[in-house]
């Protein structure tokens, strides 16, 4: 008897998922229609613009590099954390503290710290390492996107640690410790035993943050260059130009959506299989 009504519990999630898919579909549909009939005119238009392809490469570059560095740093940090047996509960609260920081505030700190007029520049000047404001290398508003990459690393590293460490802790506690009692060095037991067994979590987190940083708006908007812009910023600026430009903006979104779906496919391939 109970089973007949239990599907009601699924209604909220179904409602929201349906809303989500509908919104995505409408956006995609509008990008493919020109005055009623299906055409790819909008996509043709944005690709003939000079800045779309460079923007795609720029966005790919900053999201891939930031996710890759985050992955490498997370693995290194995990080794240090596991080796020194850090307490997970206190670490968890510290990581949560870092995760809850909004992107706009991270942008503010990076501007304060790394801009040519910022804190590091002034320290370098005081230490006589640079002679003038403009001698300090450009970290924000630059063509390569260093500030944006650093901002993503600062935000995503705690997230990846938060996501992947619990499994690494349990694997290390059982199999890693077993290896160490049999004579393996801590370095060996981490890189050849703990890491291969928990790499799925790390890679799943990698795809999440890759996808997230590809479409994220806040950091590239606040810290990015005016000539090299991320796809999301291009879409936003297109939308700001007017109501008639909405399909063009939606075609930018279509590219981002395609990429996110591709990445989510990879994520679900790597999703850790639950035991039993």
């Amino acid at each position: 008897m109970k089973k007949n009504f239990s599907f009601l519990y699924l209604l909220p999630q179904l409602f929201f998922t349906w809303l989500f898919l509908l919104a995505l579909f409408l956006g995609l549909w509008d990008s493919f229609t020109v005055e009623g009939h299906v055409s790819i005119a909008h996509y043709k238009e944005i690709f003939t613009r000079g800045d779309t392809l460079p923007s795609i490469f720029y966005t790919l570059r900053i999201s891939f590099l930031s996710s890759l560095f985050t992955l490498l740093l997370a693995i290194l940090c995990s080794f240090l954390i596991l080796h020194f047996s850090e307490n997970w509960d206190s670490l968890k609260s510290i990581l949560q503290l870092a995760i809850i920081m909004p992107h706009s505030l991270v942008a503010l700190f990076l501007l304060f710290f790394l801009s040519q007029n910022g804190f590091m520049a002034r320290i370098f000047y005081a230490l006589k390492l640079i002679s003038d404001q403009s001698a300090f290398p450009e970290f924000v508003y630059d063509r390569f996107g260093v500030g944006v990459i650093l901002g993503y690393i600062w935000k995503e590293l705690p997230f990846m640690l938060f996501f992947a460490l619990p499994l690494a802790y349990s694997v290390d506690g059982k199999l890693g410790e077993a290896a160490r009692t049999m004579g393996a060095s801590p370095l060996y037991s981490f890189f050849f035993i703990t890491l291969p067994l928990s790499i799925r979590q790390y890679l799943a987190a990698f795809f999440i943050i890759f996808s997230f940083s590809f479409g994220s708006f806040d950091l590239p908007y606040l810290l990015g260059n005016t000539t090299e812009r991320a796809l999301s910023v291009l879409a936003y600026q297109e939308l700001q130009r007017g109501f008639m430009n909405r399909p063009t903006a939606l075609s930018y979104n279509g590219i981002m959506l395609l990429f996110s779906l591709l990445l989510s496919f990879f994520y679900f391939r790597f999703l850790p299989k639950k035991k039993g």
């Binding site: 179904l14 919104a23 996808s211 479409g215 994220s216 879409a235 909405r246 939606l250 981002m256 959506l257």
Partner: peptide
Amino acid sequence: FCIFLPFMIPSSVFAMGAQIL
């Protein structure tokens, strides 16, 4: 998959479609 869908799709992509919706 349904639960984690918002994880994977950026909010700006959803926002513009949702505007139309």
